[in-house]
Design a protein around this nucleic acid. Structure first.
Lengths: 200, 200
DNA sequence: TCACTAATGCGACGGCTGTTGCATTAAGAT
DNA sequence: ATCTTAATGCAACAGCCGTCGCATTAGTGA
């Protein structure tokens, strides 16, 4: 992210068109979900011509990718509550909120990632970045002496969050916030007892 | 599944058309993946007319759903190795195999489930059934006295398998069979130490 | 064997998607 | 102010997708 945007003519109109289109994408997404997201509808709502949208964003997935990058909060970092369990619970609540929100932009982007490789790559990059940052909660726990250094940070975070994605995205079944908390606590407990060690 | 097939005329041609079309779907899927799966291509390859395919299966997703149901092994049940850990490892290897196979019908069906509600419902039903049966491995462990009866069977299985789906389907990153084994063992250990209790 | 009719084949159509060539507008430089 | 040219607007087009009305084929029962 923070990809310099070195266009040869980044002037007023171009920028205005982009923000108008992305706003339209978000609105259409909210109204009709990803299935109802059409280049034509976005063009009509934004007041920009169809051809322009096709030329700059190529596909519907491209629009979503751009929206994702534009809205990327580059300063995101996991909350620091002082304990591994608290950090993981906070993390899982964020994920839970993102996946159960109506409409869920996250769900829409996931759907898009199954259509075009570009969307898939953008989403993978986004998540790799998020998981890399999230691993800090485990490293902090190691520093505090809360867990052993042989623990694999990535796996701990994965263990905590994976059930949420699995249940809400793939299985498409309800999952309470309490259940999300439970998975977080289970991951924390597992790490503290040394079960997440890479050479266990 | 085992839905009686009470068509008003289930005669020879109808059955032949169905098997020809489904065979074509499988072949097309193997060659071009889900993205390249077209009703027209399926019709051409099977020698059945476009209109017929549209009338009986409605959409591409419908074809996949039917393929899924036709190939459904209705007698599936989890392996019984004698220990919870062994059962979960065996389970995770099955999931790992299904998700890393090329081409993966499972991956294709997942992709389809993001397009039409019918495919989503079929997939959800399929998975609910699988997880219900899989929960037996935990119930057997309870009977053996291996784990406490307060353990939630569903959550144990979920904890073991979710990371595989998350890593291979959503994050789209490689995952070794050894890593799959590790997640299975972690879930087993967590259950044995009582961390998966519903009232923990 | 013969009628009955469900299932399929066939051709054509309307709608939507994405592309292309050309005209027009407006940002940036002199 | 004027020029240059990137970015956008515009209209028309080809291609694909899904549907419809009607003709034909082939199970099914008498």
């Amino acid at each position: 992210m923070t990809t310099g945007e070195r266009a040869s003519r980044p002037g007023g109109r171009t920028a205005r068109v982009r923000s108008d289109v992305l706003a339209a994408v978000e609105a259409e997404l909210a109204e009709h979900g990803y299935d109802g997201l059409t280049v034509d509808a976005v063009a009509a709502r934004s007041g920009v011509h169809r051809t322009t949208v096709y030329r700059r964003w190529k596909t519907v997935a491209g629009l979503l990718v751009d929206l994702l990058q534009a809205g990327l909060d580059d300063s995101w970092e996991p909350a620091d509550t002082g304990t591994l369990e608290g950090d993981l619970v906070a993390l899982n609540r964020e994920v839970h909120e993102a996946l159960t929100a109506r409409p869920s932009v996250t769900q829409a982007v996931i759907a898009a990632s199954f259509r075009t490789p570009e969307a898939a790559d953008a989403l993978t990059a986004f998540w790799v970045d998020r998981y890399r940052r999230s691993a800090d909660v485990v490293r902090r726990a190691v520093v505090r002496g809360e867990v052993d250094e042989s623990i694999d940070p990535h796996e701990v975070v994965m263990t905590a969050t994976a059930p949420l994605y699995h249940q809400l995205v793939l299985l498409r079944q309800p999952l309470s916030e309490a259940a999300a908390d439970r998975y977080a606590r289970a991951a924390a407990a597992s790490a503290r007892s040394g079960l997440g060690s890479t050479h266990a």
